[in-house]
Design a protein around this nucleic acid. Structure first.
Lengths: 205, 205
DNA sequence: GTCTATACCAAGATAGAC
DNA sequence: GTCTATCTTGGTATAGAC
């Protein structure tokens, strides 16, 4: 992604700041998504990223700053995906295109779940602020850029929260064994199921 | 609530097991709802309940068992409220009645938020199991007892997850200062807003 | 039934070498 | 840029008295 150095992808342990940073951020997204903010250890993140624990702290200052960075990145990825799919020329209605863009993001469980963990920590001064701003950013995008009415935007978001919850619940794990789970999944995420069954990103433990 | 002893509400420090248990459970619901499972300390629960930290551990065995008890209780309260409002004879359509019942529950932020924290921890063996079962119990109630179609039930749940998220985000705090927050709240929870503004239960810190 | 005291471990953060 | 070693705090759980 960055190309500040002339030597690319050298099999050395040493690499540019922003490469490592991106790497750690991705790893952190996975772990935070699975275990939540407080439930995650900087050491778990370090292990997932293949670096030492003090190093991840060193890079981001504190665990909280790391989580905030994860939230910001998740929002960026989400918004980028939405803007991209909005710009596409297609016969498919915008609303559905956005839904499909969201579906792709579900592949990386950690991304949406980290956000979800942030959303539910509104009482925390820093995290809450970031979470609220991010949520409203999406809401405004839906209204202003996409052109949805408040009611349409709200419904779209509601649907998104439902999907996040089903992923957070790992309801997909019960797909084959529980007919109710199966029915619920198939009515709530008809087009998206294929992407979610079987191992995805940010697995482990 | 229980009346096993003849002396009622005596200003003593000693009380029946199940009374204290209920008290601690309520306190725990508030704290867990605000800070999440891992983010909550047994000592915070103890303080909120006005007892000693070792005592809350003693009562429930472990912090995890305490959280599971909180989840079960929250589900019980939720289902009881739903069943009650379903049984009511009224001109208002069932769907709306259930929505209003849910609105009442929002008054106790901790209740729905504890559930939400549980929903998003599906990867945890114990918590995940309880959360999935609870979620499906509600889904089934909506279908079997209320008579909703899968799609209707799914939409109802989606709306619920949206409300939970808005509460978790503490979006109500921005109601007066942020027009977007205000608009979103008013379209997502038109009839329910009155209940949420200003201090509610499970406040503090 | 409830408390005080405390053991014990885990986790975030810092120091400093390479 | 990255590691090892370590300090320090805080949090769950236990022991045992009242």
């Amino acid at each position: 992604m960055s190309s500040m150095s002339t030597t690319a992808a050298v099999p050395t342990t040493r690499m540019a700041s922003d490469e490592r940073r991106a790497l750690v951020l991705e790893a952190a997204t996975g772990v935070f998504g699975q275990r939540g903010y407080a439930g995650t250890t900087t050491d778990q993140v370090a292990t997932a990223a293949g670096v030492s624990q003090p190093y991840v702290v060193r890079m981001f200052g504190t665990k909280e700053k790391l989580f905030l960075a994860v939230l910001h990145r998740a929002l960026d990825v989400l918004m980028a995906a939405f803007r991209r799919s909005l710009a596409e020329k297609s016969a498919i209605p915008v609303h559905d295109r956005l839904g499909l863009a969201y579906a792709d993001l579900l592949t990386d469980r950690g991304l949406l779940l980290s956000l979800m963990h942030g959303f539910v920590l509104g009482s925390d001064p820093e995290i809450g602020k970031t979470a609220r701003e991010g949520f409203l950013e999406v809401y405004n995008f839906l209204k202003v850029d996409v052109g949805m009415t408040p009611a349409e935007a709200s419904d779209f978001l509601a649907h998104g929260m439902m999907l996040n919850t089903l992923v957070g619940l790992r309801m997909t794990d019960d797909y084959d064994t529980n007919p109710d789970a199966r029915e619920l999944l198939e009515t709530a995420m008809p087009t998206k199921l294929g992407l979610l069954r079987g191992p995805t990103n940010s697995e482990g433990a």
